[in-house]
Nucleic acid binder design. Structure first.
Length: 401
DNA sequence: AGTCCACAGGAAGGGCAGGCGA
DNA sequence: TCGCCTGCCCTTCCTGTGGACT
């Protein structure tokens, strides 16, 4: 681009008014003034937690609902209000909130206990101690508290699937050993069938109360989007139907409000970069593609190197054949390893990697039986040309293919 | 009815990096 | 510095299995 062109690009960027007035209103951290379509859940949670204001320990609660149904928002909203009232009334109440899925923060038993202890004022190194020592420090910190401690564990299903439910068992039994302090647990799970993974004792003590968050339908999503976009965007910057389109796309995808907000935000950003002076329905389509592409590419980037190589192998193979089996992938993968001078992994591991890639939604792999000819995974790929190219570049760059 | 393929996938454990206390 | 911890990636060994073929 010539110098004058570049300059005019920059100056036209300044001249063009931004569509965004307050972009924060489209993030998940934003707390809207009025929360829509969740009155029942708010009411329910509030009445369950209210006894803590009288110094009684509230029942343990389990909050279920798929992603983007407002679980975290409502929990924070209710606990914040509760905390404020407790402060005003000078009631001893401590509310801890931990997201168990945060990488490197609370995604193991050790880290979870360390964070909890930290929030109670104890000091725990990020690694190095035996887990039972961390547990002790957490317990000591709890002893120092008076009144009720509510522990909110967000995305608890991810942690239990990873490390088992033993820590939950310990947490639910902790009240037996405490005198001054009463602990109550508020579990938040994305997985509706999550309790199946748990020991029945843990299950019964943890789900004394349950609150279900159903997915939003398209109409509800539209109202939520309307509310947020009124704050986030300047007036009259959207073509008719943009909000409905975002709501409809997100409703198709499990009624996910987060996805709806992402869509409208990315559509706005794309429109801003384009020459159009209004956000159009086409921008929403492009936003949908971009979000999916970014998700896949980011996922692949964070995979271990052999997972990248396996994916590369699969992408090469599906060029010629629609559906392939694990064994085919493995022999081809070995050849690629030889070519790039990397020592190959065992078939067991590659099988595991394929299974992971499937769970991450990068490839499709379902187990089928071919009778006499054994059981295997039938692998297919359903990625756009654009994504395949980006993934291939990612791998080729890394291995100098 | 039984066999047998080509894997799936569980369990246990090894080796390494990063990080601690003493 | 050493000894020990955890998390991560990986191997080894193993049992399980749907259904075409005999």
């Amino acid at each position: 681009m010539s110098e004058t062109n570049l300059k005019s690009k920059f100056s036209s960027y300044i001249e063009k008014e931004s569509f965004f007035d307050n972009k924060d209103a489209l993030t998940t951290n934003w707390k809207p003034e009025n929360i829509l379509h969740r009155d029942q859940q708010i009411d329910n949670l509030a009445s369950i937690l209210a006894p803590s204001l009288r110094g009684d320990d509230p029942s343990n609660v389990f909050v279920y609902g798929s992603v983007g149904t407002g679980k975290t928002l409502i929990t924070k909203h209710v606990t914040d209000q509760l905390g404020e009232v407790a402060d005003d009334e000078q009631v001893d109440l401590n509310i801890l909130y931990i997201n168990c899925k945060m990488k490197k923060v609370a995604d193991t038993e050790y880290r979870l206990l360390a964070r909890l202890a930290e929030q109670l004022g104890a000091e725990v190194p990020s690694t190095g101690l035996p887990t039972d020592e961390v547990y002790n420090r957490f317990f000591e910190a709890l002893k120092g508290q008076k009144g009720v401690v509510i522990i909110a564990l967000d995305e608890i299903d991810a942690l239990v699937k990873k490390v088992g439910d033993e820590f939950l068992y310990n947490l639910t039994r902790i009240n037996d050993d405490l005198k001054e302090t009463k602990v109550s647990i508020l579990g938040i799970s994305n997985d509706l069938n999550f309790t199946e993974y748990m020991d029945s004792r843990v299950k019964s003590s943890l789900s004394e109360e349950e609150i279900i968050f159903p997915p939003y339908n398209a109409i509800e999503l539209r109202e939520i989007l309307k509310d947020r976009t009124d704050r986030a965007f300047v007036e009259n910057c959207m073509e008719d139907g943009v909000i409905s389109k975002c709501a409809a796309l997100a409703a198709q995808e499990h009624g996910d409000a987060r996805r709806a907000l992402d869509l409208i935000r990315v559509a706005g950003e794309l429109a801003e970069r384009s020459s159009k002076n209004i956000i159009t329905v086409e921008h929403v389509d492009k936003a949908q593609e971009k979000i999916e592409r970014d998700r896949i590419v980011e996922t692949v980037r964070s995979q271990p190197k052999h997972s990248k190589l396996v994916l590369y192998t699969i992408l090469e193979m599906v060029e010629d054949e629609e559906e392939i089996a694990t064994g085919d992938v493995y022999s081809e993968y070995k050849q690629i390893c030889e070519k790039v001078e990397v020592s190959e992994l065992t078939q067991r591991r590659v099988s595991g990697l394929i299974s992971e890639l499937d769970m991450l939604g990068v490839i499709n792999a379902k187990v089928i039986s071919k009778g006499r000819y054994g059981r295997t995974r039938q692998i297919s790929v359903d990625l756009s040309e654009d994504i395949r190219r980006q993934v291939n570049e990612l791998v080729e760059e890394k291995f100098y293919i």
